[in-house]
Design a protein around this nucleic acid. Structure first.
Length: 284
DNA sequence: GAGACGTGGAG
DNA sequence: TCTCCAAGTCT
């Protein structure tokens, strides 16, 4: 069976796939989905779009409100960048999400994946879309490897380009289908090869599922005790407060004063936190 | 290219 | 309990 046929039959009913969802909604969904599971994105996305149905609406709110509404999706710099992207769309593109990949890449927080995802899914343009799912499916089905090598934009885009149907609508379905296949069937942990439309032609399966022996991506640093954890605690405190939080209150969040100061300073550098004139802290 | 950057669910 | 992983981006 082809990936496209499989997708038409087996795709999930996700909000951003609904007819007429809109480029802005798709852009927001793609940013929220960066490193964050679908199930956690859906409720937050719907609240977000109800409050900010257009880029101009978001741009008209303070950036801190975007950070607050981001809630616990993680990587709150994404919220700040999404706000900055909304501002750029409003001021530079007349409030209309651009369809051009190069223009999308100019927007804060929009990288190689998201730019092409928006161009392909919101505008139906034929661009290879490569995320972690696609890289894994290609690694297995085409290259015969159990895992994808560390990401390489040039190589990954070329590999997907070679597989992409020439026809524009078919290309859009194929992009979505490869991602969906990786998300539902060709999963990282325990792939369900019995349900895979590519089982008959899969190079990895044909080779007897050899163990992956290539270069591996770096293992994510331990979270417990990290600056990331401290930053997360500070941000949760600020999100929960309508008024500036005093330095003393923040210092109660973490026993290591040096590490806390470092985390707080990095949050200020990122623009996620602002200090007022009485050494209290708040969202921008 | 390596490393930083949140959060929470699954096995 | 602990490791892995989830539609990446930026420096």
């Amino acid at each position: 069976m082809t990936v496209n046929d499989w997708f038409v039959e087996n795709q999930r009913d996700l909000p951003w796939r609904r007819e007429g969802f809109g480029a802005w909604g798709i852009l927001v969904s793609e940013v929220m989905l960066q490193q964050t599971p679908v199930v956690r994105v859906i409720p937050r996305l719907e609240q977000w779009l109800e409050r900010w149905p257009t880029p101009a609406a978001l741009a008209a709110s303070p950036p801190g409100e975007a950070v607050r509404a981001w809630d616990r999706l993680g990587y709150p710099r994404r919220a700040l960048r999404l706000h900055a992207a909304a501002t750029a769309i409003t001021e530079v593109h007349g409030g209309v999400v651009p369809s051009d990949v190069a223009q999308l890449l100019e927007l804060p927080g929009i990288g190689d994946y998201t730019a092409r995802a928006v161009a392909a899914f919101a505008f139906g343009l034929r661009h290879p879309v490569v995320d972690t799912n696609v890289r894994r499916v290609v690694a297995r089905a085409i290259l015969g490897q159990g895992e994808a090598a560390p990401a390489s934009t040039r190589r990954d885009l070329a590999a997907m380009e070679a597989l992409l149907p020439h026809d524009e609508p078919a290309a859009k379905v194929f992009n979505a289908g490869m991602m969906e296949l990786g998300a539902l069937v060709c999963t990282a942990r325990a792939p369900r090869c019995g349900d895979c439309p590519l089982a008959g032609s899969c190079a990895w399966r044909a080779a007897g599922y050899p163990e992956y022996d290539g270069p591996r991506s770096a293992v994510q640093a331990k979270f417990e005790g990290s600056d990331r954890q401290v930053r997360g605690l500070v941000m949760a405190e600020l999100r929960a407060s309508d008024i500036p939080v005093t330095r003393a209150e923040i210092e109660r969040l973490w026993p290591d004063a040096t590490q806390l100061a470092r985390a707080l300073a990095s949050l200020e550098t990122d623009g996620l936190v602002v200090a007022d004139d009485s050494d209290a802290y708040l969202l921008p």
